[in-house]
């Protein structure tokens, strides 16, 4: 079994988000980068499925050379090899196209992504890869079992879940519940240095969208405190002032 896991290099979850260049660019100064937390869940599930010599896990990242520490982290967690497509990701369409083109060169049984990246929050790449490859895509799964030929997945839906069965190749985007994120151990960190990390060139594709600028949400006014015994006053404020109940 061969599994391809797509990983994104994102700012640490505690990062204070600021912008430079007249709010056109994310301010990367002093920012720590991590493997996108949802991608880490996808990677952890892939490693579990391949445990005991049942298969190999390849991680793929579309990024420039500065994403390599993040890719090494994925190798330390337990991926067998890595590929970096050497390009700054322009949008999800570009990224998904690069991954799909790479996937065509190797016979992967499944491609796993995180449900979304925590920076641009597009939940687009997984389903786009599926469309580029003409295979099913299941978005926002919380469970994945695989018996060697058929996968059973649970997908989140409003107020419940849907159980889906797929025979043949597929793409899925993973959310919490799919696996417990694995933490790299010392042996993993040591071996990550020597695991294969190849670099491939990006392929050209038209650009369909671009981010023009960012803004941070307007600051909220000061909190209006209500004494603990005056819950009726709170209800009154929510009804008459905020008009939300």
């Amino acid at each position: 079994m061969k599994i391809l896991v797509c990983i994104s290099n994102v700012p640490d979850t505690t990062t204070k988000i600021t912008f430079t260049g007249d709010n056109t660019q994310f301010n990367t100064a002093g920012v720590q980068y991590i493997v996108n937390p949802y991608d880490e869940i996808a990677l952890s599930r892939a490693i579990e499925l391949c445990e005991g010599g049942k298969g190999t896990v390849t991680v793929i990242n579309v990024g420039e050379s500065q994403t390599e520490p993040t890719i090494r982290k994925a190798l330390a967690i337990g991926a067998d090899e890595a590929v970096r497509i050497n390009a700054a990701p322009r949008d999800a369409y570009f990224t998904a196209y690069q991954i799909a083109e790479y996937a065509k060169t190797a016979d992967f049984d499944m491609i796993l992504c995180g449900r979304e990246s925590i920076d641009y929050n597009g939940a687009q790449v997984a389903a786009m890869i599926g469309e580029f490859l003409g295979i099913p895509s299941i978005s926002i799964i919380k469970k994945l079992e695989y018996d060697g030929s058929t996968a059973t997945l649970e997908r989140e839906i409003e107020g419940g879940k849907e159980v889906i069965s797929v025979s043949g190749k597929f793409v899925a985007s993973c959310s919490e519940g799919t696996a417990e994120p694995k933490i790299p151990n010392m042996r993993g960190i040591m071996s990550a240095r020597t695991k294969p990390l190849s670099v491939a060139d990006a392929k050209e594709i038209e650009q369909l969208s671009s981010i023009l600028h960012f803004e941070t949400p307007p600051p909220r006014g000061t909190v209006k405190l209500v004494p603990a015994e005056e819950t009726a006053k709170l209800v009154d404020l929510l009804h008459n002032e905020a008009k939300v109940i």
Partner: peptide, 23 residues
């Protein structure tokens, strides 16, 4: 942008060679 919408919009965008903005 529901759970199902998140799975549909990217595929529709690729089919139509359309730029996609979600959320």
């Amino acid at each position: 942008n529901s759970f199902s919408g998140k799975g549909l919009a990217p595929r529709i965008a690729v089919k139509l060679r359309a730029g996609l903005a979600d959320g």
